[in-house]
């Protein structure tokens, strides 16, 4: 991926992100923050790649720490969001 292609992806993704939360009701602020926290848990993919390619004890130990932290992000983010959203079995739909 060369410079400008990446820049365009970056631009469009930023606009998409903005649009997604533009009309979110206040009651969903906390669950949505937790949900977006889970989404950046995708860092786990990069952390696994980094550890796979690591050479020498320094790279391996930092890469190992990276995978541990990234998994904590993804798993913790999923569980906490799911628990918060479980509560939204609403009888009255609030928009």
């Amino acid at each position: 991926m060369t410079g400008f292609a990446a820049l365009y992806i970056f631009l469009i993704a930023a606009i998409a992100g903005y649009e997604i939360v533009a009309r979110v009701p206040v009651i969903l602020h906390t669950p949505l923050m937790s949900g977006s926290n889970f989404v950046h848990g995708i860092v786990l993919v990069g952390a696994m790649l980094a550890l796979a390619e690591a050479r020498g004890p320094l790279e391996v130990s930092v890469g190992f720490a990276g995978v541990v932290m990234a998994t904590g992000n993804a798993v913790g983010g999923y569980v906490s969001t799911e628990r918060m959203l479980e509560m939204f079995h609403s009888k009255k739909e609030k928009a």
Binding site: I9, A13, A14, G17, M33, S36, V39, V43
Partner: peptide, 13 residues
Amino acid sequence: AMIIAGTIVGAAG
């Protein structure tokens, strides 16, 4: 996947 998901969270956040 990381570029797009990360950027979206950056903007949405």
